[in-house]
Amino acid sequence: MIKNISNLGDAALYCDFGNEVNKSINLQVIKYFKTIKEKKFEGINNLTPSYNKLIISYDLKKTNFKEVKNYVENINAEDSIDINSKKLEIPVCCHENFSMDIKRLEEILKLSREKILENFLNKEYFCYMTGFIAGMPFLGDLDENMRAQRLETPRVKVPKGSVALTEQFANIYTFESPGGWNILGNTPLDVFDSSKEDKPNLINPGDAVVFKEITLDQYKNYNEQ
């Protein structure tokens, strides 16, 4: 349930679902997001679900805080809305060409490379949200012994396709972009495709994701089949 609604500036609602990050709170956020999105309230132009917040921005020419707040307060998102989640397998190559932060992870986690991969691969992760850059999924939760902080100095350029870890989450860089997560491998799969306007994201909030290891040869041949 929404614990509190306040304003974020003069053109957005800030719906707070609490401070914890867990699947059940996030599913509440996703339910509200899907319900409001389907109802197409005049003036609402964007919804941004995240771990435990939902930001609803609106066109100040068409509506205002009071109207949107009143509308959201009277929504019943408990109805059995179909989250429509999928289970996806993502190929990842963890060859030294790609696993740029493996040494750092070995030191921080005090685990061998083999152990890190064993802990990470073939497990089901939940997609909490997508964004920051187009299509980037935030996946969780990593095992307790796999949690490392961000790099102190973020990289100016993280290669496209990088699979990276921070705290209890994994993500995939859908574009070359700046970033401070610990890079473990790279996927040859296009996780974001802007030519598919109705479904540009391969992974969506609520989906389950499993990383499967591929070799460098399989990686190189992946897009040539």
């Binding site: 500036g9 990050v21 964007n46 941004t48 771990y51 435990n52």
Partner: peptide, 10 residues
């Protein structure tokens, strides 16, 4: 903070 949505002007 735990990552959350942004809007222009934040």
């Amino acid at each position: 903070i735990k990552s959350e949505g942004l809007i222009k002007g934040v």
